[in-house]
Each structure stands twice: as structure tokens, then as C-alpha cells.
Amino acid sequence: MKRNGMYFWGGAALFLAGALLMTQVIGNQYPFFACYVILQFIVLAVAWSILGGYAGYVNFGTSAFFGVGVYTAVFLFKATGVPLAVQIAAAAAVGALMGFALGLLTLRMQGIFFSIATIAATIIIETAITNWRYVGGASGIQLQRPAVMAPFDNYVEMLFFVQAVMVVLAVAISRYIQNSWIGRGLQALKDDELAAECTGVPTLRLKLTACVISGALMCAAGAPAAMYLQYADPASAFNLNYSVSALAMSLIGGTAHWAGPVIGAILLGVTQQLLTVTISSEVNVLVLGVMLVLFVVAAPEGIVGLIRKVRSKRNEGEG
């Protein structure tokens, strides 16, 4: 257990050091543009999995949290011009509050009712933002990036590194939850909510906790997107594609282990980047949909499940 932790934090430190080194060595902008998107999807998938994977509540509202994160940053930037770190922290706080409110409203519903309710919340919030003139309304808003901070010599590189830090944070939180009593409680209520209650699990409180953490991470992941694109509009900030991507990446990677969403997001994110460049963005959404359906039908436990199966087969072969 302890040794596992050392490996994990060592790996995380190595990952961040690598990311930082990349920003200092590579001059070309494109890798950062592409990698930023992949990192962003890792955060979203990991965050989705905390509620959707561990607790089994299929959240279609990833785009709602993402969009609110974007617009929290837009509003703060326009109103006060505070630095990026404050925008992200504020977005996380707003996301936590929103997760709490939405959770209270929807987490008593089960299965499909919860999922539909989260879509409903997404559209309602999007409509509200569309009607909010101060942040640009339906036509969107242009944003001028402020000067970049050292040691970065370019804003996109900085955004890339910031998102890398968020990946480590999200994965660390997800890993902690999985290995703690919270994770065991969520797993129990995913299996059987009534049996979990009757075994002492405070199901509503645990679901709310998961929803708050998941929401905070999703909002935080969205906050830098405005500066990344230098533009924000409701239709793209609340695009349902974020919801289906986060869900697909988690389920394809597998939700039984924290590494599942990470694997899924890297696999799909890289594929999408390649496809968008070489063929078209329609094809990459198609691939996402087809992979989701294929995995859900043929490999219900995702890639993590496949790996486990192969391992146990091998162990049986040896024993």
C-alpha cells in the first residue's frame, strides 16, 4: 500500500517535471494546443468517473459544469481581471456549490431519471447564460490574454502546464476516494442502494460528496478554456460533446479503477486529435460514439476490465 503511494507520487512528479521541461524545450506551439485538449479530457473523465463510475449515477451534465467553469472565468476576467489561478479556484468553488445544489435536486432520482434531469439542468443553465448580456449572450465574447508569467514564454504553454497540474490533482483525489471508506461506500451503493443504507452507509451524503467533488473538478477544468480559445460562447461551452466524451472515455477505460478514465481519455483524446487533423471533426465524434457503443456492448468493464481478465487467466494458467 505504502509502496504503491510512493510510486504514484513519484510518477506524478515525473509527469509534471516532464510537462514543465516540454514547455522550456519545445518551441512549436502545436503540441501544446493538442496536448492541452487531451489533458482537459483526462480531468473531465476522471471527474465524471467519481460520480458516474464509483457511484453509478450516469451524469449527462458534464457540459453544464464545464460551461459554468468557462463562464465563471469569463465573468471574473471581465469584471476584475484577476489572474488565472484565481479564476480556476473560483470556478472550482462555483462547481462545488453547483454540484451540491444539483445533487440535492437530482440525486434522489434513480437511473435514467437522474440522467435526464442532468441534461435538463444543462439546457436550463445554457439558456440562462445565453440570455446574460454581460458575458456576451448568444453571440459570445472575445477575450484578450494578459501577459504571460515566468517561467513560461507563451500563454498556451502556461495553460498546458496548469491543466497538467489539474490532471495530477484530479487523479490524486480520485485515487484517494477509491482507496478510502468513501470509495467503499460508493461502490456499495452502486451495487445496491437499500442494502448499503441498511449496512450503515449514508448514501445521500456520499452521493452528494461525490457530486460536489466531481462538479468542482469539472468546473475547474473548464475555467482555462476561455483563455485557451480567447473566446467563449454558450453553444460551444455547453456543447453536449463534453458530456458524451467524458462518459465515453470513462466507460471505455473502465470505471472500476481510477486509471480507467485516464487510459480512456488518453486513448480517445489522441485518436480524436489525429482524426480531426487528418480527416474531419465529424468522423472523430462518430468514432467516439461507435467506440462507446462497442465497449458498452462487448467489453462492459472497459479496458481495465480486459486487463484484469487477461491477468487472472494468466494467473490461472500458472497456478
Binding site: R184, D191, A196
Partner: peptide, 13 residues
């Protein structure tokens, strides 16, 4: 039972 768990894990809940 909690179907995704072992017997021991069921009790650990």
C-alpha cells in the same frame, strides 16, 4: 449482496 465485492469486502462495508 454487494455484487461487485468479495465476501470480505461486503463485511468491510
Amino acid at each position: 449482496p454487494f455484487r461487485s465485492m468479495t465476501v470480505a469486502e461486503n463485511l468491510m462495508v
